[in-house]
Amino acid sequence: MKSPTNKTTIIAAIIAVAIGVGTFVALIVLGLGGERGMGQPVDGGYFLQDAATPVMEDLTTVHNMVFYWISGITAFVMALMVYIMIRFREKANPVPSKTSHNTAIEVVWTIAPVLILLFIAVPSMQLLYFQDKLPETDMTIKAVGNTWNWSYTYPDLENIEEIISNPLDEVQAKAQGKPYLLGTDAQLVVPVDTNVKVLVTSINNMHSWTVPSFGIKMDAVPGIINETWFRATREGVFYGQCSEICGIKHYYMPIEVNVVSKAEYARWVANDGAFTSSVAQNNTLMGSGQTAAQK
């Protein structure tokens, strides 16, 4: 009676640990190992897009931290289940025990999650407050969601007209070398390393102004002006997509932000919103999160 049970226990433990660790490692490798998109999704990608702002960097850190915890918990539960299923299957353990209480273990499994959650909550709150707090803003832009496109204005700048950012259809997108359903015919242009305040609102249905690489998602609600901010630390073109259901063209109102050097931006402003140098225009044409120089 004794020996087979012992053997089962050992085998079950080995299998369970193997499966648990395997799952954990697989999840982490799968999760963190993938190719990341910068400013736009990558083909078959399975992880967060790369960070282009400090907020997104922190967001990635917090996400990864939570991701470790939840992968660990999932792997742990899975391993425990596998162990139990092998060790206590009818054949291996014909006579069930009758235990139905154990205060010590019940306390443990209440306290342990509480502690884990505290570990999660603290950095998570820090991220939340960092994300919310507007630092000294250097400039402001307004993004207005229309059914169905985005329009941008620069309240501080008199000479820049409202930019109406319409999506490109498949043929135009191909012609301009931009990704279809992400590229627009008129981008929002902002300088690098600048604190930009974004005011978001809508004139009709709700929309949501989203740029994944910036860690920004802010609903555009009629009658309400929401604000958020970003500080792009890299030059390049960054794409996003409307993220609040707004009717039939919900999938067809992308967001395109061109982050250019400060000098380039100054020239762009001086030129009433037209590019003079080819670098910036190349940025536009590259249609990716990298500048021409980086490619």
Binding site: T140, P155, D156, L199, I225, N226
Partner: peptide, 9 residues
């Protein structure tokens, strides 16, 4: 919503 916002816009 935010006086600051209203000044700007």
């Amino acid at each position: 919503w935010n006086t600051d916002v209203l000044e700007n816009a």
